[in-house]
Design a binder for these strands. Sequence first.
RNA 1: UCCGCGAUAGCUCAAUGGUGGAGCAUCCGGCUGUUAACCGGAGGGUUGCAGGUUCGAGUCCUGCUCGCGGAGCCA
Length: 431
Amino acid sequence: MQQITISDLKNFVGQEVTLYGWLYHKRSSGKIKFLVLRDGTGYVQCVYFKGNVSDEIFDIADRIGQESSIIVTGKVKQEPKAPGGYELDATDLKIIHETHDYPITPKEHGIEFLLDNRHLWLRSKRQVAIMRVRHRVVKAIRDFFDGKGFTLMDAPILTPNAVEGTSTLFETKYFDLGSAYLTQSGQLYAEAGAMALGKVYTFGPTFRAEKSKTRRHLTEFWMVEPEVAFADLNDDMDLAEEFLEYIVQTVLKEKEEELKILERDTTKLQNVKRPFPRIHYNEAVEILKKHGVEFQWGNDFGGGDETVISEQFDRPVMVHHYPAEVKAFYMKRDPQDERFALAVDVLAPEGYGEIIGGSQREDDLDILLKRIAEHNLPQSAFEWYLDLRRFGSVPHSGFGLGLERTVSWICGLEHLREAIPFPRLIYRNTP
RNA sequence: UCCGCGAUAGCUCAAUGGUGGAGCAUCCGGCUGUUAACCGGAGGGUUGCAGGUUCGAGUCCUGCUCGCGGAGCCA
């Protein structure tokens, strides 16, 4: 008897096979029982007729509870009515572990209950589909950069200094050196990498101790940050749009089944093709005014503002030249107009907001020193970073893409917490 | 941190200030093609915690705890 997976059933029609998995769902009708098996690769209905199997096997099928782990043997049958197209005419059933009273039933549950049971919730169809898409997005990210001559060069997670104020940093004791902080961004280290390798990217978890309590925030999330030497803001935008197009089109092509399970309207994703609209901050402000939004020039956009702006377009929109005041110290200012930073945010459609933030970096030592002073940052903490401008400084640019926001957008999720296996939220760090 | 909402059976919810219910889950019984199957029956409650008002509080009032939605901030 051949042991196979549910995803391989199509190659074994008419043959008797053995599947290992968990009981996902059960229906019975007197002398016939329908056991839906899941094995991580898919779902298949196994049909047990009384008479075709021994009474003992039939009793097991009757008795075992949802999520019991079992070994099923039977003949593969094509069944147009079955989801997936195949069904198992079962001949045998063995128990690996019998269980009862599994907490997550086929009926609806509240979000608190589901998050308390996240370790079990992950077994459900929808969550499995999301994790598959997440995995494919991660692979697409790596394939894209690897294929373009980038080197993966990860940044440290424990960092020595409170760079942009301690209020949003997680602090931890660090032996005799006092405190260390969980990284908020690998960018400064990526810049060092770009000066060594030309094109690099960091990809890992980042941490923000912001007391944010919205569907768009996690305290721990994953970010990919490419950094390119000899690249200006336009090069940065070129890279960002090619990157996003590649991710979305790849997932559309390869995770069709999962997006269907998630009931994602993929027509909106089909549009994600170059070129993306590029608008100046001033144009974005005009759009807000035209739509009756009260907005003070010079401010950053809020979530609602971003939605209004992105609704004007059928694909991601790149907003560039933000007022320098609201942007980070390391962003280079526009030599034509010092009020603006050479920065870009990419706003996803359908209200998903900012998924990419990037900029051309300040490469002049003296200007950077001035910015550090203006932001009341401790220069000593940045001496290593300033060295990058002392020894062979070049124009360079990069951006950061939030993985969970991207997954959330592609999957059409209501909340970021479903886009990561074990979400960390302001009032939750379990399981 | 601020604004708003909520906490009742394992889960999702209902209950005019007057004997706390339903669906699902569980258990028992029925059904040879079910798709969140269906039909009949049973068990299951310190109504988040602490006070108060009242003849009487799940319901009204005060405080607390926990959670949810949003804002600000950000990816």
